[in-house]
Design a binder for these strands. Structure first.
Lengths: 145, 145
DNA sequence: ATTCTTATTGAAAAATATTTTCAATAAGGA
DNA sequence: TCCTTATTGAAAATATTTTTCAATAAGAAT
């Protein structure tokens, strides 16, 4: 089910600003701040209001169509969610982000922590940062900035 | 080595605002926003400027004495760092945070990911959220909010 | 103790980010 | 094509963070 169907299903409308936000996120692949998304929409001559960007991101996050990513500095960024993947790997140089698989066993690490702390764990946020292959090739850069 | 020695070592001064910020964080145990820290300092009749709170948090984070924690809503919170522990578990009810150990082997998960993606991984951000034992007892609440 | 140097502070202003309000618009069913 | 109402965008309100700079105080030197 794509995002338009999802919206319909919820009785929500497929509007111009929503189309633009999704399109910008699709083009990017990188986590973007609301401001960055707005800027790019203007650059693409698709003029939408900043307020709508905020509202759209809230909505799409609610629906699970985009995810919020917390970097060390930029703290309010959003990426399109590929369903089933919940972890990000972000390049410190160019900002590109990929999702990766193979962390299904993370949940097996949870049990000992729940035991140690007495917490019930419901959610987690995992994000790696490093240098992507492109940037390694281009710059010969490997270490942390 | 305590924080005062650490500052001296770096040629930095042990000042009133820095003492107050650390003290507030010690009292709390919970991650606090710069504003919250400032508010509490005033309540404790230890009047310091909000600007100094920001600057102190930046500094202490730099020195690894406090860590920044990203909640789902509150996004700019800080807790005192227990050395050697790097991961947080935050209660969705009361906001209390603990650091936990036993994730040393997280780095062993990195290799396959580096192989899959071609990235060089330098940093990671890992945070669990759930319900702390206190809140479980008080409310009988276990599931995600 | 006192003086000196300079890191640090706090107030104000500037810059930036986010939320609220509300009349005007347009999505999509009838 | 009309109608209902979810949604938009502009402006204002609010909140957050950073910058600037003269005044202060930490701590080394005397």
């Amino acid at each position: 089910m794509d995002w338009q169907e999802k919206l319909n299903q919820e009785g929500l409308r497929v509007t111009h600003p929503r189309r633009v936000v999704i399109s910008v996120l699709e083009q990017s692949g990188t986590p973007l701040s609301p401001q960055a998304i707005h800027r790019r929409s203007l650059e693409a001559k698709e003029e939408i209001g900043l307020v709508s960007v905020y509202r759209t991101l809230d909505l799409l996050t609610e629906l699970g169509l985009v995810r919020r990513v917390h970097g060390q500095n930029e703290c309010q960024c959003y990426v399109l969610a590929s369903p089933g993947h919940y972890h990000h790997l972000v390049c410190q140089h160019c900002g590109s982000a990929v999702e990766f698989s193979g962390m299904e066993d993370l949940s097996s690490l949870l049990a000992p922590i729940e035991l140690e702390t007495g917490f019930t764990i419901n959610e987690h946020l995992l994000q790696f940062s490093g240098v992507c292959p492109e940037c390694q090739r281009r710059t010969g850069y490997h270490d942390q900035e």
